[in-house]
Amino acid sequence: MKTLRLLYMAEVKLSVREMSSVIFGILLPVGLMGLMGMFADTQLELIRAFAAIATIGLVSTGIMSLPLSLSSYREKKVLKRYKVTPISPTHLLAAHVLHCFSLSTLSMVLVFLVAWLGFGLEIVGSLWLFLGGYVFVMIAIHSIGMLVASVSPREKTTGAISSALFFPMFLLSGATIPLTILPEFMQTLAQIFPLTHGITILTDIATINEFNTVSFLILFVLTGICLMISVKTFKWE
């Protein structure tokens, strides 16, 4: 337990020192919420903006931080080193995932505070259901990151795959640019991004207090497939 705590603290410190996950995962969504809050004319627009921007944190940690760190730890033989100690490299993996989850959740809470205190956000659905939905989407998106970390042979390849997944999702699934202002074919295209379904789930909870079963099932199956392939193909070195 002590080792896990120390490894977790180390992951937090490393990410603060490295800055990119703090910039993409915290500062960017908080700033964007401030901006979109000013543009939102109605409560509905504000809720939609909040539900979408709240996912930026989990996408940055799930698609960027998780696979990049794991690939780097594998390439630098950090994982292998823990195989020749009394603990297993699973501890380091767990510490990093915990770090990703806590950074994502912190990002969502901060975005919520900006929308609530700054612009008087009042979500229609239950806060607990929203939180549950958030955790589900967070796990789903991180499972994609695990898949990338498992199938990518090198850190550089991981960087390329992660960017290729991150930026389209980031820009076109409604997290930064509201889907409603995009042309119709783009809105249809956006359905291929898992994050679009994540945002749909959160938006439905926040606006009409309903759980979107179709999007839920799509993400649920995707998560299952990603985790299954990860477990089968993940290599410690």
Partner: peptide, 8 residues
């Protein structure tokens, strides 16, 4: 290789 998380 020294095999540590760089930045520690």
């Amino acid at each position: 290789e020294s095999a540590f998380q760089s930045g520690l």
